[in-house]
Design a protein around this nucleic acid. Sequence first.
RNA 1: GCCGCUGUGGUGUAACGGUAGCAUACAGGCCUGUGGAGCCUUCGGCCCGGGUUCGACUCCCGGCAGCGGCCCCA
Length: 443
Amino acid sequence: MFQPVKGTRDYLPDEMRRRNWVLDRIRRVFECYGFEPLGTPALESWEMLKIKSGEDIIDQIYYFKDKSERELGLRFEWTASLCRVVASHRELPMPFKRYAIGPVWRYEHPSEKRLREFWQADADIVGVGEAIADAEVLAVAVDGLKQIGLKDFKIRVNDRRILEALLNIADMPLGRSLEIFRAVDKIQKIGVEGVREELKRLGSSEASINRLLELIKRGGRPDEVLVDLERLVAGSPVGLIGLNFLKEIYKYSKLFGIDEYIQLDLSLARGLDYYTGPVFEIYAGGFEDYGSIAGGGRYDDLIKLFGGDQTPATGVSLGIERILLLMEEMGMLRNLEFGSRVYVAPSSPKMKPKAIEVAQLLRKEGFETDMDLMNRSLTKQLEHADRKGFSWVVIVGEREMAEGRVTIRCMRTGEQRSVKLVELPDHLKPHSSSSLNFNSAIV
RNA sequence: GCCGCUGUGGUGUAACGGUAGCAUACAGGCCUGUGGAGCCUUCGGCCCGGGUUCGACUCCCGGCAGCGGCCCCA
């Protein structure tokens, strides 16, 4: 018997329905904010995927040669593909706001929280260098999460240019910023001592390390930290640029209505090498230990690295599996209610042609409709409809049909009544809609 | 990548160096025009490869997969 390959999994209908529900809502929010869909291949050239990914990620790229010895890889995130498109389509009007939702692949140790094939929902703004873009990208992410029923958030933000300044203040070795960033970023996972070890390995002195660890402890609500921080990086032009940018983001976040979630965290750096300024991660409020459910940052140099003009860009990525797992844990997926579906049951095989007619009529009206394909007895059909969770069964019987009527049965209550065929859609409508409902959703 | 535990019908489990049993699900029947209960019937399995043995699902080795931990990392 074949199983899904390591780190991948199947999604049976019940689960897939929930997944789709979440994906649909996020897509709708993306489009609501004016992001446009962009399709790019799962397969990209290895050469391209490697650019500015960072050592650790490169090891995780699915790599292979095709039959013509081309070196290829599977996308491990969406940003590179976006940059490739932007670099090679100079005609795109700016700003270019695009979203992409789909699977990405990383060769790493699978666990419940980490598969080798997983979905990311990305929203990026290309062509805007100002903080309004970063704030909007955060807003769309928060709104997407709200629309699937999450309520409270913590957005950790930082700017790598501030970190850069702190590195200088702490007298850390020059030219190893990226490695140091990666080490510092792990503080949540490996703890202060772990980071200390890492930094030692990178050739920093004990004193520098202590100083840096002390510096990055600062964090919290922007209103409280920003002033303090201003004094700290006063002597560093780069640091000031970063700081001012964060201020701008914070300013705009108020206008977008997400400022209450924002927290400065000077230890945040993120693992990818291409970030040039602000970086951010979103956590579900009260579930910070669970890990981030979205993350992103600004990558102003990446498009140029891909052969395009110097073009600023920023974006955010939602981790779909993480989000679903979290929702599962919070018990939110059980409350999902889907539009009611209709099952058409001929009372006997003889009525099959009439049943098809009824089913087609309902489908034309937009009802999710299924019918018996196996000449089952009415008993079996009801059993089946019950198990599959249909809300309505339309019984197409000889006796009623002779008068142009059918019987509708509500599967939840067991009530049923006879209705005219021409009025059938009206009788099913109150309980059926193409839109989805969510009991505890804010919306 | 490393260490540990695990691998029996679709799912969950039992036993055993000598013909693999149960539950549940699926399909059908009791029920020839009415679901959720009950009873009955059918279908269906030892992860893969090698070794030890008269004989391996069982013991040994390797692989693969899952789970947990470490490492690594969104």
